[in-house]
Every structure is written in C-alpha cells, then in structure tokens.
Design a protein around this nucleic acid. Sequence first.
DNA 1: GGACAAAATGGTATCGATAACAATCTGACG
DNA 2: CGTCAGATTGTTATCGATACCATTTTGTCC
Lengths: 356, 356
Amino acid sequence: MKNEDEPKDKRPKGGDAQKLTMAEVAKYVGVSAMTVSRAFRQDASVSEETRKRIMEAVDALGYVIDLSAGSLSSRRSGFIAALVPSINNSNFSDTARGITDALENTGLQLLLGYTDYAAEKEEKLIEAMLRRRPEGIILTGGSHTDRARRMLDKAGIPVVETWEIPEEPINHVVGFSNSEAMSLLVRTLASQGYRRFGYIGGTTARDTRGSQRRSGFLKTVDELGFGPGRAISFGVPPITMEQGGQAVMSLLERWPDTEVVLCVSDLSAFGAIMECKRRGMRVPEDIAIAGFGDYEISSICHPSITTINVDCYGIGRQAAVRLLDALQAGGEATGDEIILTGYRVVLRESTDRSAR
Amino acid sequence: MKNEDEPKDKRPKGGDAQKLTMAEVAKYVGVSAMTVSRAFRQDASVSEETRKRIMEAVDALGYVIDLSAGSLSSRRSGFIAALVPSINNSNFSDTARGITDALENTGLQLLLGYTDYAAEKEEKLIEAMLRRRPEGIILTGGSHTDRARRMLDKAGIPVVETWEIPEEPINHVVGFSNSEAMSLLVRTLASQGYRRFGYIGGTTARDTRGSQRRSGFLKTVDELGFGPGRAISFGVPPITMEQGGQAVMSLLERWPDTEVVLCVSDLSAFGAIMECKRRGMRVPEDIAIAGFGDYEISSICHPSITTINVDCYGIGRQAAVRLLDALQAGGEATGDEIILTGYRVVLRESTDRSAR
DNA sequence: GGACAAAATGGTATCGATAACAATCTGACG
DNA sequence: CGTCAGATTGTTATCGATACCATTTTGTCC
C-alpha cells in the first residue's frame, strides 16, 4: 500500500504550483477579498489607488481570477453558446467570427459547437452547452428535436435561430428566406433569357437551408412556366466540391439540353464548373452554372461564379447583438422578433449570357 | 420607489422557471443529493435500480446538471482550451475538428479561440482561457509573448504546441518542420528540371509557419545553387486568394523568366493561377505554380495544384490524445515529447513538366 | 466645526455540486 | 447463525468567488 503522506500535487510542471486565490492576493495587499473582487470589475467602486495596488500584486503574484467560482455565486456563467452545422464551411465560420467580434469587450465568452448537420448531435450539444449554464444560445436553423426544444424552453435563456426563418421560432430570429433567395436567382437568370434550369442539391432533412433553396427553385421554375424543374440530389452534407462535379454530370446525362445549373452552394458549383471544363465543356458558353453563398473562391476563380451573396458575418454579429439586447433587458420588454438579413444576386462570368 | 416584493424572476420566458438543483431531484426520488451526483457518473457505485429511478426523475423534471458548480468542488473544469490562428482557414478548422473528435466521450469540452495570427491577441486569449481553468491547452505554433509563457508555466497544466517545431518547446509538441517541408517541395520540383524558382509569402512574425516555409525555400534554392531566391511578400495574414494573384504579378514583373512559383498556401496559389489565366498565361506551360496545405480546392480546380499535404486533422487529433495521456498520467511519467506528423508532396497538373 | 451624503471597504452567507469519510446494507461462507 | 468484505447510500465540509448588508472613511456645505 502506498504511503498516504506523499505529496499530492501531481501537476505536470509549473513553477510554484500553489494555487493562488483571491484571499491570498488580498492578504498580500492588505485588503479584504471582497475588495480584490471589486477591483476586477470596472464598475465596482474601488478607489483608484487601491485598485492600482491590487493590480500590481496580481501582476507580481501572477494571479489569474477563477471565473467558474465567481459564476457560481453570481449566477452568471459569462458564456454564450453557439452551434453551427460545420466549422469547415467558411460561411458558418464567418458567422462564428461575427458572433465573437460582437462579444468582444462584453466579458462574455463563446462556447462553440458544430452539429455536423445532424439534429441528434445538435440535441446532444445543446444539453452539453446547457450544463455550462450559458446566458444565451445561438442556433443555426429552426429544425430541432422535441427534446432540444423542451430543454431550451426550460433553460429560460434567450435563443436566437439564424440563417433561415423557422416556421415556429423559439424566440429570436436573425436570417433570411433561403427559398426566396433562390427564387430571386432563378428569376434574375430567367430575365436574362435562360429557360431550361437544372438544380444540384439534396433534399435531406439534415440540411434544411439546402432543402429550402431547392424548393424555392422548383416552385419558381414552375411558376415561370419552365416545366418541371430538373433537380438531382446527392450525398449527405457537407457537400464536397467533388460531389458537385459528379452531380452535374448525372444531371447533364439525364437532361442534356439544360442551359443553366443552380447549385446549393458555391462549393458544389465550383466542383461542377471544374468538372465541365475537364470534360471540355465551356462555361458559360456551353453550360451556365451558378452557386449560393458567395464564397471567396467564386470571385477569384475563372470563370467567376454567379451566386447569392449572404451576409454571413452580419448574421453572426446581429444574432449576438440581439442576444446582448435581450440580456440587457432582462428579458422583459424585448418581444421575440425576426430580423431579416439581406442577400443579393451577384452576376458573374459563369452565367454570362453574352458569351454564348 | 419600486415595490421590493415584486417577482424577481426576469427570465425571458421558459415554462416553470424555477431553477432545479440536484437536491431537489434527490428529494423527489427520495435519496440524497450525493447519490444523484453519483448517478451522473458512470463509474460511481450506484445500484442500477436507483440510477434508473434517478434518471427517470431527471427526465421527468427536465433537470440539467450544472457543471460549473461541480467543477468548483472537484477542481476539474472539464475544459480543454485550443487556440488557432484563424477559424476560417480550413487547415486549422480541420485541426479543430481533430481535437473535438478526440475529445468525444471523454467528458471534456473544447474552448476554442482564434488569435488572428497575433501574439498579443493570443496572450489575451490565453488569459481568458486560463480564467476558466482548463485542464490542458493546445496552441498553434511556438511563438508566444513572455507574459503568455509565464502564465502558461504558472498554470501548471499540460501544453501542446502544434503545427511547427518550436525552438524552445513549452511542453509537448505535435507538428512538423515547415521549413523542411517546403525544402522537400523545392527539391522535388528541382529534380523535375525546374531551375528558376520564385516564392510568394510573407516574412511577418505574425505567421511563423509562413516565415519558416519561406526560409526553407530560400535556403534550399541557395543550397541547390539556383542563385538567390526570388521571394516577394505581401499583406498580413490571413492571405487572401486575391493577394496571391497580385503577388504573382509583381513577382513576374520583377523576374519575368521565373519558371515556377511556390506559394505559402494553396489559397494564394489558387489566386495566382487564376490571375495568370486571366492574363492569358498558361499554367503550367508558361508558368508553373505550387501551393502548400492541400486544401480541397487544389485537387478539384483546373489545373489541379501541386502542393504539400499536411495531416491537419491528425495534428489536432494527436495533440488532443497527447493531452489526454498527460492528464491520465497526472503529469508524472510522460516526459515532454515531440511528435512529428507526416507530410508529403502531391504532384499535380500545375507543375506538370511534360506539358511545357 | 458639525451634519450628512457618498464613496470605499469589510464580514458573512451562499451559489450547487463533489470529496472524504461514515454508516448501513447485502450476500457469501464457514 | 455470525462474521466480514464489498456494495450502496448518507452526512458534512468545502471549492473560490460574489451578493448583500454593515461599517468606516471621505468630502461637501452651511
């Protein structure tokens, strides 16, 4: 049996491994712990002189305040949770950046998670997040499991759904209609003379925004009287560039006279364009292709890609601001509200009609 | 003056806004709070029957455990912190994904931050992270401010530096030599007959990996006797595709007979290639271009881009595993160690010599 | 100089879980 | 049937900060 008296400190390394507490800093300075606590918050009333002495001591000792202790007694975790489908998708990482930027200097920290486009994973993540008692939560989309909804309701914190307009919003919404955005793109291209439209993008419930774009496409093509829409779907999200290439080929195989192909995202559009070029087809002369999302690549590549520009960063920023407002108001005055973010068609070379 | 007796609950909404505690769940079930606490952990000894009853109550009441309270007394936050330069860069988001995946089912949660390639921002973030008492921390690169180093040392938690081999590692390292990787690319292309090498990528201290690639380039070109390297730099990281395009033009203006241009990343390489094509130059016939990082785009675009494939995901995964090992060992046996991750040259169309 | 408001500081209880130890229960075995 | 180890459950103190209220100090004004 081991000697029970052996040192218990098993920290990997680190100089003086004693754990400093506020009380020790206080003793060192000759004030009470409460005063040290106040010194760490700007608004609290501590004389400049005392604060200075305390901060010098903090520096000298290398003290780092422990927020988890504080949040227990103050009942404010200082966390905001945000869930995005994928962190590898620059549209969503732009949104994450918008959130982070809006949170700067608010004393709030972001807890980020990614759901992999799966509602069950979202449910798990929501639970994991709620265990940290976030003061608010930002979600992508409006499609959640029942249990997730119940947990969110019970948590009693402001919720912001983003990137789309849910049929039954939980609380606040910052987004746009993916269906209408895609519809706008169809109409814009139709006004340029295109008639035979194709579409690439799944129907899967995993990517609700993708499904909405697809239905917006089909509905609009129908309304315009351009016959039944030619839509094919493929794999599960996230859709790769390569899949975009495969998809455009099966689409053209099935409907060889397609004039223009709209894609669920720029990434699949890019893959489609590259595959066409590889096969010797010219874009837009032989086939026009458009995307969605206005990724960096679309303005750079050759031909540049017609797309819908979405204010990804703004969605994140506004969602965070909305949350901050709600927190400020203590949840009283602020009614649930839907904030519509803008989008616009960006016409580029890949659908240039004059090139035909 | 307001009536002090008015309800204090200002929660936004939420059904029964009472905050449940473990004690209440315990009372409901008819056991002690301690037993409920045990039921939440797999290993703890609670009879199956009791656990089942407790979990049913948890479900019925909608109780969500409060980890911040638990971590205070258990002195284990359940957090791992990770800092990456940018979340929009898919190389780094792959690394983040690797970390997250490795943490799955460990009960540890990731606190992610991005430094914007700035050491001062890294310092701030490290402090913000340490306030949450993470059990370990994963950093990108080995370049940190003095204060950051002191804080990390004082924190006494395992540190893993990634994506490069620091001269003075803090603790653990999972990465590769960016300089040698670039050197390998130069030698490989030299063996194909290329002689007049150009380079695009900054020297800034912000992007140490970029600087290492650059110096690896210059050193190798020099060693091979191919005269002084032709290197130009531009803007601050993160480098955009567009900047890649601008850079290749100024490089060719200055050294018009350059045969092959190596870029600090695939993104700038892509921008460079597109700009060349836009100007009517053929790649690789007129000018060969290579990148670094093997982003998705490089295998898809036309011409496909020669690059260095880096195990981004594996870096994250291994870094996390290393951390878990260190935590397991309680910091005893595990010496600081450098784990080298692989990389390899991927030759593609953009440097295809036979096309000339 | 005294009165009084405002500023600055301190003391104590507490947030909600878990560690550590104590107590009780269960079943196996001689 | 008694004993004892192991399984199960309970009790109390505590993690490290902050809320709340009490107290002391400072400054202003007549």
